[in-house]
Amino acid sequence: MNTPPYARELGLCLCHTCGYACSLDAHKCPRCESVVHARKTNSLARTWALLLAGLIFYIPANLLPVMFTNMLGSGSENTIMSGVIEFWKGGSWDIALLIFIASIAVPCVKFAVLGTLLITCQRRSRWAMRERAKLYRFVELIGYWSMLDVLVVALVAALVQFRTLSSIEPRIGILFFGLVVVLTMLAAMSFDPRLIWDAEVNDVR
């Protein structure tokens, strides 16, 4: 099977906003007027920075309580993990699994995958390019589902407001957790998957 040419070889450059094939020396897309780059600017450095910031915030996000529950006089604080365990013990293993995937597995997979992609791209590795490209699309697809826990805390806190009888309040951990989601989403957006394939072409940097 013939492999298609790269845009760069034809003097073309994709506009990410409207999909137009601009000429390589254009600074602005002639059709939608957004700024075009052959590759996202400083992709590797920006992705590293955002990813590391996300990783740092991930620590307080897991250690600090995300929610304070006062049920008929007895108050308790929940972290993300203790919330999962509570569901598990309460018999709803399906919800426990769902929250575990959204809040713990998805961020961890993102850190691992983006980290691997960054390192392999820096080394201009030709290892498993097709699979790495798929991995990137997977991370892009699942990333925002981590927002689940933030929205659950918001809904539950808005609902359970019976003064002294019962109430649920959000706690600082949820702020860190939300920031982790936003930072990792930004990291995935600033990574340029075309860098994976640049390893095939020798003279570009």
Binding site: A7, Y20, A21
Partner: peptide, 16 residues
């Protein structure tokens, strides 16, 4: 015309 090209946003391959 440029509108006849379609470029893969994930790997930069060009197709008609």
């Amino acid at each position: 015309r440029p509108a006849d090209w379609i470029i893969c946003e994930h790997c930069d391959s060009v197709y008609l």
